[in-house]
Write a protein that binds this DNA or RNA. Structure first.
Length: 264
DNA sequence: GTAAATGTTCGGGC
DNA sequence: AGCCCGAACATTTA
């Protein structure tokens, strides 16, 4: 489920526990979400430390504990963060539970495409420090967008927008929304866009990202009326502008919806 | 019962 | 070598 704004929303759920000590930790250590982590290291390192701070970047989240401990969490397709009362009993899909005196911070993920990693050090892991700019950040310039597209010249523009190295946080619904609002057909090779189209795509990528963060990211409110978002999930979806049925095909390995009249 | 799901990674083919 | 596509991962829901 989670893209840029949903990830930010879930990060905020755990903020209820910031500044408070972690008393104990429970994990489903053999589950796939720990494939990049040593679960026993989490079990021995986090208890006793204060949950200090958190930040999201694209689809990744970083959490700081104690003096030198960090968790990075990716929510995959079905991951969520939520808060439960103290004494909560983790369910089948609640793979990580951080117990505090007042509450339990829970990570759940039925499909287990998400992942958790542990890092010890004064600084976050190198890959976090060196991450490329996300579309909601100042570093996401027209030049950065152009370079990202030029690295994948033959790839359908829809597939290019899904690459996290170039567009951290963009996922399937955001890519469809951006292409629809920018008036660009999803199957066009990335290198075939004109300079004016790349500029329009850049501006739309930024505005959709910022608007989604202000609605979904803050409170999980629906994005603005008139967005493709409200139509693209159902097989009978219609273009919000033309009220004609949306086209539907697999592009970049993902279900893609677009309007033949809007997008060229 | 079958298909599809807001994501990433890997292996094979060109 | 590099790029691109499809399969795989695990589970629920329509």
């Amino acid at each position: 489920m989670p893209e840029l704004a949903e990830v930010e929303f879930y990060r905020r759920q755990w903020r209820a526990g910031e500044g408070r000590r972690v008393i104990s930790v429970e994990v489903h250590a053999t589950k796939r979400v720990f494939r990049n982590a040593d679960a026993s290291q989490i079990l021995t390192s986090l208890p006793g430390g204060v949950f200090r701070s958190s930040v999201a970047h694209g689809k990744q989240m970083l959490f700081r504990f104690g003096a030198q401990c960090w968790l990075t969490i990716h929510l995959g397709m079905s991951g969520k963060l939520r808060v439960e009362p103290a004494g909560f009993r983790p369910g089948k899909h609640d793979h990580l539970a951080l117990r505090q005196k007042e509450r339990t911070l829970v990570y759940s993920d039925p499909r287990q495409f998400g992942r958790i990693a542990f890092h010890r050090g004064a600084q976050p892991p190198d890959w976090w420090i060196n991450k490329p700019p996300a579309p909601n950040e100042p570093g996401f310039t027209l030049g950065a967008m152009t370079r990202a597209l030029n690295r994948h010249r033959k790839l359908a523009i829809k597939a290019a927008l899904l690459l996290q190295n170039g567009f951290p946080g963009i996922g399937n619904w955001m890519a469809d929304e951006i292409l629809w609002q920018a008036g660009i057909a999803p199957g066009r090779p990335a290198a075939k866009l004109s300079a004016a189209e790349v500029r329009a795509l850049w501006q739309t990528t930024r505005s959709v990202s910022r608007r989604a963060l202000r609605t979904i990211g803050k409170s999980f409110d629906a994005p603005p009326r008139g967005w493709l978002f409200h139509e693209r999930w159902s097989r009978a979806g219609k273009c919000p502008k033309h009220r004609i049925p949306l086209r539907c095909a697999t592009i970049g390995g993902r279900t893609t919806a677009w309007c033949k009249a809007c997008q060229r």
